[in-house]
Simulated assay, not measured.
Amino acid sequence: MMLQAHTDGWTLLFLAAFIPGVHLQRNDSSIQPVSDSELHPEVVIYRPVLQPSESIPPTETYMLKDVLGTVCIKATLGAEYIVIEKKPWYFSLDPSRVRTSGYCGTEDAVLSLTLPDNAASLQFNFRKDKDAFYVVKVTAHLAYPICQGCANKSYLGLLAHEKLFRTTNGQSFNCKSESLLLLSSQLSIKLVPLQMQAFSLRKGQYGKEMECWADFNKRVIPIIVGATVVGLLLIAVLTFLVVRDRRRQGYDPL
């Protein structure tokens, strides 16, 4: 028996020395086996964290290229989800976690922004006419657990058959003001700021900016109000001068 054990030992040493992949293992109870948790660490699933108050969403530029490597969609935006669940809850899209996807066609294009584990998404469907392009559909969803240990609850929203952000081909739609999209009774999307262009981007750069109505009103209305006030003041001054001159003429001797 001892001779056989001795022979087996030399055999193992020979195999370990000359045959790759064969290793000696100590029969030591102090060496603990690898646990399943170390071999298969727990996968952390990304879940949005909703906030009770609004905040300015971080801005990022998202681009999509066609099969030739040409930029066909470019969008600079900050997006905030607004969920109505007894009271408003808010979630800002994190650009560092967004995956960009979609496709580019001659008359239709899609830009999809998706968070890990499909926790949230935002999609724009573009359409091109002869002289303009616009967003014909916006879809979004947000999934989060409503309580600790509860299953995820999803909020879905759709805004279709529209001509949003309509812009002349070769130009970009630009809006520094808030753009609020009501996608459902429980889900809205706030875009601020927003600049986008599809189909025709020279060297991947935005074309001439087309100002949105909200920005136009913010810029023009104060000018109109100011001009109206100045006009009223001038009328008041002129009226006062005319009345004063007439009163003086009434006291002149005949």
Score class of each variant (00 low, 15 high):
residue 1 M to K: 10
residue 1 M to G: 12
residue 1 M to A: 14
residue 5 A to S: 04
residue 7 T to H: 15
residue 8 D to W: 12
residue 10 W to Q: 11
residue 11 T to S: 12
residue 12 L to N: 11
residue 13 L to I: 10
residue 13 L to S: 09
residue 14 F to H: 09
residue 18 F to M: 12
residue 18 F to C: 13
residue 18 F to K: 13
residue 20 P to E: 12
residue 21 G to M: 06
residue 21 G to W: 08
residue 21 G to D: 06
residue 21 G to V: 04
residue 24 L to Y: 12
residue 26 R to Y: 08
residue 31 I to S: 07
residue 33 P to D: 10
residue 34 V to I: 12
residue 34 V to Q: 12
residue 35 S to K: 15
residue 39 L to H: 01
residue 39 L to W: 01
residue 41 P to M: 11
residue 44 V to K: 14
residue 48 P to S: 11
residue 48 P to E: 04
residue 49 V to L: 12
residue 51 Q to G: 14
residue 52 P to F: 14
residue 54 E to C: 07
residue 58 P to F: 08
residue 60 E to I: 05
residue 61 T to M: 13
residue 63 M to V: 14
residue 67 V to L: 14
residue 72 C to Y: 01
residue 73 I to W: 04
residue 74 K to T: 00
residue 75 A to H: 00
residue 78 G to D: 00
residue 79 A to F: 00
residue 79 A to T: 01
residue 81 Y to H: 09
residue 83 V to G: 03
residue 85 E to T: 07
residue 86 K to P: 00
residue 86 K to T: 00
residue 89 W to G: 00
residue 91 F to D: 03
residue 92 S to E: 04
residue 97 R to H: 10
residue 97 R to Y: 08
residue 98 V to G: 01
residue 99 R to T: 11
residue 100 T to W: 06
residue 101 S to R: 08
residue 102 G to A: 05
residue 102 G to T: 03
residue 103 Y to S: 05
residue 104 C to P: 03
residue 105 G to H: 01
residue 111 L to N: 01
residue 115 L to D: 02
residue 117 D to S: 13
residue 117 D to C: 10
residue 119 A to R: 09
residue 119 A to S: 15
residue 127 R to T: 04
residue 129 D to A: 10
residue 138 V to Y: 02
residue 139 T to P: 00
residue 141 H to L: 06
residue 141 H to Y: 09
residue 142 L to I: 06
residue 146 I to F: 08
residue 148 Q to W: 04
residue 149 G to A: 05
residue 152 N to P: 10
residue 154 S to V: 11
residue 154 S to L: 08
residue 156 L to P: 00
residue 157 G to P: 07
residue 160 A to W: 13
residue 164 L to W: 08
residue 169 N to Q: 01
residue 169 N to D: 02
residue 169 N to W: 00
residue 170 G to K: 06
residue 172 S to Y: 09
residue 176 K to P: 03
residue 178 E to L: 09
residue 182 L to D: 14
residue 184 S to C: 05
residue 185 S to C: 10
residue 192 V to C: 03
residue 193 P to A: 06
residue 195 Q to L: 05
residue 197 Q to M: 02
residue 201 L to M: 01
residue 203 K to F: 15
residue 203 K to A: 15
residue 206 Y to F: 13
residue 209 E to F: 10
residue 212 C to D: 02
residue 213 W to P: 08
residue 214 A to K: 11
residue 215 D to H: 15
residue 216 F to Q: 12
residue 216 F to T: 15
residue 219 R to V: 04
residue 221 I to K: 07
residue 223 I to L: 13
residue 223 I to A: 10
residue 224 I to H: 08
residue 226 G to M: 11
residue 231 G to I: 12
residue 232 L to W: 05
residue 234 L to Q: 12
residue 236 A to P: 05
residue 237 V to C: 13
residue 239 T to C: 13
residue 241 L to Y: 12
residue 246 R to D: 14
residue 247 R to P: 06
residue 248 R to M: 01
residue 248 R to V: 06
residue 248 R to S: 03
residue 250 G to K: 09
